[in-house]
């Protein structure tokens, strides 16, 4: 595939840099995956806990390459009529009406039924044709004049049937529409495909085999600091280090849902709004609901709040 901003995908370091310019800080693994996805022309399946920037990666890639980002949000019950194509039924009905009215003209001079049928065939059948086709995200991505980024979000939420439906698209960049035929991606205009999954269920091997697999874990301290700095540059360095240490400590606790990067960023914004300069137990207690989303988690953390906060303060 050739893209207008191909040079931005020249090497892993270049990708990392260009991402960084867009405030998306990534480790070499992530950049490697993007690099390979482009050069091998393969989709990437991104897995990882919620809130580590899986969807963001696709969006940032689109922004970096200045491509359109076509997004397909998966959910239970999603089927081909919402993902690939649908017929414009209203127009099709109108067409039959029009056809009925012009029927006399078409059949003029025909003798007998067989001649009429022949004449009707000559007229051409556009009932199932491109004119009445309403493209949905997958088809749109294939037929896009320019390359695009296709984001198939939370593929684990969709049904097994839909997963199988994706296989053709992912391996050959083509889709079959029974009434029309096979639609192929324009050569060198293949979309860059990202799939994300929260692992609520195991993705089938068939799908995994067709994709590169990228697992994004929670970032380590350094990376998370960089991310917060890139996303919330206003925050003071001291506070930033403290809160990152605090979050990292929380991830070691036994919680129902540990805070992810998105929560860290939200928390940083909250702390700025509150004009805080340093963490203290009271402040943390008041803002705990920003980073923890379950009451039982909040309760269990509150018990250890003092010690965790002190640890965060001491280390920075």
């Amino acid at each position: 595939m050739t893209l207008k901003n191909e040079e931005k995908l020249a090497s892993v370091e270049v990708i990392q840099e260009s991402f960084e310019k867009l405030h998306y800080i990534c480790n070499p693994q992530i950049a490697t995956a993007v690099f390979l996805a482009y050069h091998l022309e393969k989709p990437i399946l991104i897995e990882g806990p919620p809130g580590v920037g899986k969807t963001e990666l696709a969006k940032t890639a689109a922004e970096m390459l200045e491509l359109e980002c076509i997004r397909l949000q998966c959910y239970e019950g999603l089927d081909e009529s919402k993902a690939i194509y649908e017929w414009k039924y209203g127009k099709q009905l109108l067409y039959t009406q029009v056809l009925k009215e012009t029927l006399n003209e078409i059949l003029e001079g025909a003798k007998g039924l067989s001649q009429s049928v022949d004449k009707l065939h000559e007229f051409g059948d556009i009932f199932f044709s491109e004119e009445f086709l309403e493209p949905r995200p997958l088809l749109k991505a294939l037929r896009n004049d320019d390359s695009c980024v296709l984001l198939i979000d939370e593929v684990d939420k969709s049904d097994h049937e839909f997963e199988s439906l994706l296989l053709e698209m992912l391996s050959d960049f083509q889709l079959s529409i029974p009434e029309i035929g096979t639609v192929k991606a324009i050569e060198n205009r293949k979309p860059l495909v990202f799939l994300t999954s929260n692992n609520t269920r195991e993705i089938s091997d068939a799908l995994k085999r067709r994709c590169l697999h990228l697992y994004i874990p929670f970032p380590d301290v350094d990376l998370e600091r960089k991310i917060v700095q890139a996303r919330v540059p206003e925050i003071a360095e001291k506070l930033r280090n403290q809160m990152v240490t605090f979050i990292q400590e929380l991830r070691d606790l036994d919680l129902k849902k540990v805070p992810a990067i998105s929560e860290t960023i939200d928390w940083a914004r909250t702390l700025i709004l509150l004009h805080s300069e340093s963490l203290d137990p009271d402040l943390v207690r008041q803002t705990l609901n920003v980073i923890l989303k379950f009451q039982e988690d909040i309760e269990s953390v509150e018990a250890e709040l003092q010690s965790v906060t002190n640890k965060a303060l001491k280390e920075n």
Partner: peptide, 19 residues
């Protein structure tokens, strides 16, 4: 070496345990 390692990991290992 690391680049190769990361690349092959992306291509061959398809879940966190496998990684």
């Amino acid at each position: 070496r690391t680049f190769l390692k990361n690349s092959l990991a992306v291509v061959l290992a398809k879940n966190p345990e496998e990684k």
